[in-house]
């Protein structure tokens, strides 16, 4: 039997997440502008940008894989979103949500890389190489932070992690998980592609990195994907460390708090080069992560 309620909930959740993701991107640009003492664009600017890209009269394609890349990325983002317990909605559930979501949040990057590589642009190739190296570098501390979480709460199910946090206090009040929080926050900058680790789309160096050849409708699809991804990643962060939420408003406040930490870090620090980033990831966050795992096991 086809479950109408589940389908409607999923569609509503995707629309809500896309809209709020665009607003988050607007907040990001506006807050950066205010920090640099500019007026900044209106908060709904990313929606206008996406509309404009959809309204382009011409679109350039380099073949099937090029078209397939953004669709693949958007699909993975939406799948990750539906596994995360957003307030009292969790549409899909399994025994190992944590692992599924952690991997699904990495997949969109691979989709973009797939599409970018098929365009044959040298800037795309450099961007893809940097992106893959950043991913390899950040997997280790990212995995350690997640292991610390799973070790301390003794479960891989995201909704039991939320329930346990509401019973025993948020994750960040536990010393071991506070260290994991710091590690995850450093990795989070790289996941969002923000400043100290925005080596992938380094705008002044390699044009736009993997996105250089995308224009028109493809770019609009990538913008939508970025919005959903931003929403899903901030929600994942809030669920793991800030005690989840019982309604969407509470979740929204926590997501915006997480977003502002990322924006402030991004507006202060300059960009790492790729070798510095890899060295950094394999040094300090890894050490902190190992300490967090050991402490969480006690």
């Amino acid at each position: 039997m086809f479950e109408w309620k589940l389908a409607l909930e999923a569609i509503g959740m995707v629309i809500y997440a896309t809209f709020m993701g665009f607003i988050f991107m607007g907040i990001e640009r506006k807050a950066m502008a205010r920090i640099q003492r500019r007026v900044g664009p209106p908060i709904y600017q990313p929606i206008i940008d996406t509309l404009k890209l959809l309204g382009k009269k011409e679109s350039v394609s380099h073949g099937f894989i090029y078209d397939f890349g953004p669709v693949f990325a958007l699909g993975a983002s939406i799948a990750a979103l539906l596994f995360i317990p957003l307030a009292n909605f969790q549409l899909f559930s399994s025994n190992a949500d944590l692992i599924v979501v952690a991997y699904l949040l990495e997949v969109p990057m691979l989709g973009i890389m797939l599409g970018a590589m098929s365009s044959g642009n040298p800037y795309s190739a450099v961007g893809v190489q940097r992106g893959l190296l950043t991913m390899v570098a950040m997997q280790l501390p990212y995995g350690l932070a997640l292991i610390a979480i799973a070790q301390y709460w003794g479960t891989f199910k995201l909704n039991s992690i939320v329930a346990l946090q509401q019973l025993h206090g948020w994750s960040i009040t536990v010393p071991a998980l506070l260290l994991a929080f710091i590690v995850f926050d450093i990795v989070f900058q790289a996941m969002l592609g923000l400043e100290p680790f925005d080596i992938i789309t380094a705008p002044a160096e390699i044009s736009m990195g993997p996105m250089v050849e995308y224009g028109g409708k493809h770019a609009a699809l990538l913008f939508t994907q970025h919005a959903v991804q931003l929403f899903a990643e901030t929600a994942f962060f809030a669920v793991l460390f800030l005690g989840g939420a019982s309604n969407l408003l509470e979740l929204l406040i926590k997501q915006i708090a997480v977003l502002f930490i990322a924006i402030f870090i991004a507006s202060i620090y300059p960009r790492f080069t790729i070798d510095q980033a890899a060295k950094f990831f394999w040094k300090w966050p890894t050490i902190l992560g190992i300490i967090a795992v050991i402490l969480a096991g006690w």
């Binding site: 640099q36 900044g40 664009p41 600017q45 044009s207």
Partner: peptide, 22 residues
């Protein structure tokens, strides 16, 4: 593009990729 005349308030933005530019 900097604080004095800030064209980003009209939604204008320097974009390095010609495929996305207007």
């Amino acid at each position: 593009v900097t604080a004095r005349y800030d064209i980003e308030r009209f939604g204008m933005m320097p974009n390095p990729a010609p495929r996305m530019a207007d």
